[in-house]
Amino acid sequence: VLKKILGNFEFRCIVGVLACFAFLQYGQIRVENVILHQGETAEKTSLPISRKMMQGEIFRVSFIISNPLNLRYDLNIIPDDCAESLTINGADIPLSDYSGRCNYSKGFVLADSVTAPHRVGPRTTYELTLKNGGGPGGINVFPKGTGFTDALEIVIAILVGLALASLCKRRKWHSFLLFCIVFGVFLRFAMFSALPYTQFANDVEGHLAYIQYIADNLAIPAADECWTCYHPPVYYTVAAPSLVVSGLLGFASSAGVQLFSLALSILVLICGLTLLKKLVDGKSLIVAAALWTVWPTLLLVAPRIGNDQMFIALHVLCLLSGFNYIRYRKGSSLVFAVVCAALAIWTKSTGFISLALVILMAVAGYL
């Protein structure tokens, strides 16, 4: 039995993924010791910082970036609202050339070549002075490793794609569909690693605060407890463990929630292809599968944080099992479809579409 397991292709891929992940986890570039100085007070906190502040208030934020393997990295700094000055290990870095130093959505990027001359050893202290232009003030920082970490991420993406394609191959999938899976998984990983969660996002800090509330209190907040708490709770509850786990592993807490979105978008890819395979064949299947694999909305959800992606996943599952019910008249498929529709409604109110669909399918299948 052991020989059979060790010789299994998917098993080898999973071992490869875990090995790469262990390297990433050990060598990852972390932001530590975040301290917010407001006037005379200094407070230890964590990123992202977003506080109520007076208009025009000047505040300082210091943090340490630990880089155990001394990898090259770029630093994306997103100030809210303006970064006035920056020191790296005490050395002043002029910011006047950075057009994004007042851009609170994308921020600016300090290239490795700028910071490298001032970095000594694995830990580097950064200190920024910022000015709040109005509304809440704060900062977020994303170190982005280049070279070695990119290579590891690419290997992980390919191994995950190959493992999933190999599972589908056992079910006698067409080679073009297998290619769609490998390519689609790769594209989703690329979106996940290239885009910060703030891109293409609505109220994303609110969604994170909602998930954090559930992780902290182990309870669902009242609708007026936070500014996105009026949303139904299923997505936020299911995403809470991923937030806790990524925190425990020392990654940014948002990374785990993004990874959950990535997993959902891969699930959507595979379930969608399964459904298309049942509906059409020949050239139509090739066109449909290619469109499904590269459809922009379905790609964009991979790095995002929000309840849309879970709604999409549940809707596709609902559609697939409802279709199975009509085709094979298996009641258990309909039970599954109803459960998915119920979860979809309590994920996002758009889920009413899934409910209507299930009713139609229940009637159609029965008659």
């Binding site: 298996k330 009641g331 258990s332 309909l334 039970v335 479809a337 109803v338 459960v339 529709a341 119920a342 409604i345 409910l355 299930v358 009713i359 229940a362 029965y366």
Partner: peptide
């Protein structure tokens, strides 16, 4: 005649509506 699992799914569907009403 409907199968047992079909009846279960109809009951669940009804429960969803009851849940929504609340």
């Amino acid at each position: 005649a409907p199968s047992k699992t079909e009846i279960i799914s109809w009951v669940l569907l009804l429960l969803v509506f009851v849940g929504l009403a609340f």
